[in-house]
């Protein structure tokens, strides 16, 4: 494989790992992402997608785990309103992250960057 192909392969792997991190393989996917990142060079397409993937994962971690945990701690385990909030919030936010990661994955298959600057800097 020449460099371009290898870069593209890494770019799609990053996008896929980011999606897996959100779904079937949490944490393991993130470790994979860090590994792919370590192999990339600045200003390349694979570095771009590795960065998008890592930022997505970190943001999702904060939004899903930290926020949920805080709500439960603040709202109390025994209050129905805590669960009303946590269920609705977790489901919709988690699904949104999955949809974003899916879009990123299909975008990486075309070999181009995302059209808008999201989570890439």
């Amino acid at each position: 494989m020449n460099t371009d192909d290898l870069q593209l392969k890494r770019a799609t792997s990053s996008a896929l790992l980011s999606l897996l991190n959100l779904t079937a393989l949490p944490v393991i996917g993130f470790i994979g992402l860090l590994y792919v990142y370590s192999k990339t060079k600045p200003n390349t397409i694979d570095r771009y997608y590795a960065v998008v993937g890592i930022k997505t994962s970190l943001l999702a971690g904060i939004a899903l785990l930290l926020v949920t945990l805080l709500v439960i701690l603040l709202g109390g385990f025994e209050s129905p309103l805590t669960w009303v909030y946590v269920t609705s919030y977790f489901v919709i936010v988690h699904a949104s992250f999955i949809l974003f990661a899916t879009w990123t994955l299909t975008r990486s298959w075309t070999g181009e960057k995302l059209k808008r600057q999201i989570l890439s800097k």
Partner: peptide, 22 residues
Amino acid sequence: MVAITLLLTAAGTMQVYLQRYS
């Protein structure tokens, strides 16, 4: 429709808690 779904989800969670879980 997203709003309807979220509101019913919230109502449902509350319902489960008060009627079946507590």
